[in-house]
Design a protein around this nucleic acid. Structure first.
Length: 327
DNA sequence: TAAGATAAGAGGGACAT
DNA sequence: ATGTCAGTCTTATCTTA
């Protein structure tokens, strides 16, 4: 019984110390759970750093972790104009002690909230970020971009703005270029055409921004891996594993013979797949693969010719629908 | 209807001026 | 900075099987 009492006392003391305001000394510090900020209910003093969410950590992967879940802080993202660090006026109309506000106070707070949020995006750069990142947010679902690419895009975009590259260029063009860069850098196979179409900017403009970023930010991009392109095309066109495997060996062979330089990797992957289809008598048309790869049939034909010639691949004679040799 | 052939045009890199 | 050139890719159209 005694130990229990002592424990309660200790907890109570901790609680008391925790609530003491640094400015006015009163035990009136409270935490706003929705924003994670700590402030004094009497003098209004707000603790500078964001305090950690008092709730448990959201993820736990084992029993021990579940029992010992600690908070690691509010998630921070480069893809927000303020990186998620701004202080805002809360939305539940309650005062420091948790009581609801009076009607007149409520309207005052609403007005304050409006001006507070307006003042958040001050300066052209902030406004630029807002617009760019809302565009990015919209795009990431359309293009099925992973989180890492989104963060990378935001990082590149911030760098670009730091270097004053935005002046005289469209925000959407620049963010699209940053997105394409991030895709290239992380090996996510997305074509310039796809991105340009989604953001509704001409491919030419995105491409121009892309090269500008490449030059100004001193970046070097690895060439898109045709093998990665291939798996994307084959899944989009619904090709079989067998076709894919053969196409893979064709690509590797082509790589060895160094006939891939300067050619569009998507076109190459597409034609390797087509060649594989022909050899396997798969019956998939150039059109289907061209659509899946985002290149034209003519490009496939050109690469196809080159592949066949240089790799000396024997194409079996055409079989008709009943698998009888046509002479 | 799919595939092949051909031509015109766009955009960009390399190089010279 | 500007112009030229070879090479690539796209679009469009016609022909062939």
């Amino acid at each position: 019984m005694r130990t229990i009492l002592v424990r309660i006392l200790v907890v109570f003391q901790d609680y008391e110390i925790d609530r003491r305001c640094i400015r006015c000394g009163k035990n009136t510090m409270v935490t706003d759970d929705s924003t994670g900020e700590r402030f004094c209910g009497v003098c209004g003093f707000v603790i500078n750093e964001k305090v950690e969410d008092s709730g448990p950590e959201r993820h736990s992967f084992s029993k021990e972790e579940h029992e010992n879940r600690t908070r690691t802080g509010v998630p921070m993202s480069l893809a927000m104009h303020d990186m998620g660090l701004a202080t805002i006026i809360g939305y539940d109309n309650k005062d420091a002690t948790g009581k609801p506000l009076s009607a007149s106070m409520k309207s005052t707070i609403t007005r304050l909230r409006t001006w507070d949020s307006r003042s958040q995006a001050h300066g052209s750069q902030e406004r630029n970020f807002r617009q760019a990142f809302s565009e990015l947010d919209r795009m990431k679902d359309k293009l099925a971009l992973p989180y890492s690419v989104v963060e990378k895009t935001a990082y590149i975009y911030r760098k670009a703005l730091e270097k004053n590259l935005a002046r005289g260029r469209s925000i959407t063009g620049l963010i699209a270029a940053a997105m394409y860069l991030a895709c290239r850098d992380t090996g996510t196979p997305r074509t310039l055409n796809e991105i340009a179409r989604q953001v509704n900017v001409k491919r030419k403009d995105v491409s121009r921004c892309y090269r500008l970023l490449l030059k100004e930010l001193d970046l070097t991009m690895p060439v898109l891996d045709p093998i990665k392109c291939m798996s994307r095309i084959s899944s989009q066109a619904g090709l079989s594993e067998k076709v894919k495997r053969l196409a893979l060996t064709i690509l590797e062979d082509a790589n060895e013979k160094e006939i891939t330089a300067g050619k569009d990797p998507m076109g190459f992957a597409a034609s390797a797949l087509y060649l594989s289809c022909v050899i396997n008598n798969d019956g998939t048309t150039q059109k289907v693969i061209a659509m899946a790869a985002g290149v034209t049939e003519v490009t496939i034909r050109n690469r196809y010719k080159g592949l066949r010639g240089l790799l000396d691949i024997k194409v079996p004679p055409k079989l008709n629908k009943t698998n009888i040799l046509q002479v």
